[in-house]
Design a protein around this nucleic acid. Structure first.
Lengths: 186, 186
DNA sequence: GTCTATAGAATGATAGAC
DNA sequence: GTCTATCATTCTATAGAC
């Protein structure tokens, strides 16, 4: 019970201020508990972050569903799933935490890589060639992460305020091409 | 002289550790000066960051040059320029600092928005319609920033180790479409 | 211009009473 | 399980001697 209150507060703090910008005391304050309790349940700030890095099941299920959409609509489906996840408070907290922390924190960086190769791309069969398949996954990740950051984190206009359908119309074909288009491999 | 040594050290620290993760003492240590000197030349940590947010002229010139490349090759040129900037130590230090700090620091976020709308897109005449033009700029930024982060900051494989030409072959057409393709505007 | 010294606050973490 | 008290460190920033 208390442990979950603390965890929820930690997710909120890490996702809005990053790892370095978050203090254990701030987490305790937001959870309405004594700072020592935070250390009691989680042994250190680092382990608390670790506990926040689990992806919510709904987020992963959306991704799996997108990959089983009809051929030719996968690109559109992945863009819609990206926006759905960023609009889901739990999923977006995880995404923000991971993206804002990965550059400074090795374990979180591993988590990001894992998220891309296993979760985002796990359900995919992009090509018979493993190397080509991983390359396609990289390009998909580069565009979808760029979309998430510009639209939801940095809120760059006008993409930040654009209706979902316009984003899908613009970026869907990009992803579709990365999924099964001709990328002129050497 | 000393002020420039301090500035160079600050750029290095901010770009590798972000704003919160960088201490004035660490900057002074790396510059080989007393911490008090840092405060003497720059009044606060915040003003020191501010001084680090100027884009190197070479970076901006590359972007202008890309926009004056022949029609039909602009997408490819912008991808090449992005990689050139991330491979230039001065430009990549600025990019890292801005991208790692923007989420927590309002002034830096403004700098990022300015960088996109004025510098990256300033030389462009994407369309006669101002709104459509800004929308195209958003999409271009989303893909190019995503490329920078996955390839140079997070070093997600295989895009991180891929030859430039393969990246251009994959992402060039995406940018070209955002520049002058049919995005199905409502 | 340059450094010593330090204020004043916040930090991660622990020991131990209840 | 919960809290008080505290250690040891680090931080931004300043005052003031030389």
């Amino acid at each position: 019970m208390l442990a979950e209150r603390i965890l929820a507060a930690a997710r909120a703090e890490f996702s809005s201020s990053g790892y370095q910008g978050t203090s254990v005391r701030a987490i305790a304050r937001q959870a309405g508990v004594d700072p020592a309790l935070v250390y009691h349940y989680y042994r250190s700030k680092d382990e608390l972050l670790h506990a926040c890095l689990q992806a919510p099941p709904a987020m992963l299920e959306r991704i799996v569903a997108a990959w089983s959409s009809p051929r030719g609509e996968t690109g559109e489906a992945l863009v819609r799933v990206t926006m759905a996840n960023w609009s889901d408070p739990e999923a977006s907290a995880l995404l923000r935490t991971v993206l804002l922390t990965a550059a400074h924190h090795p374990e979180t960086l591993e988590r990001l890589r894992d998220l891309i190769t296993r979760q985002l791309m796990g359900p995919a069969r992009l090509s018979d060639d493993g190397a080509e398949s991983r390359a396609r996954a990289s390009f998909i990740a580069s565009q979808l992460l760029g979309l998430g950051l510009t639209r939801y984190v940095w809120r760059i206009e006008p993409i930040a305020s654009m209706p979902d359908d316009e984003v899908v119309a613009a970026i869907g074909p990009t992803i579709q091409r990365y999924v099964d288009g001709d990328l002129a491999f050497a």
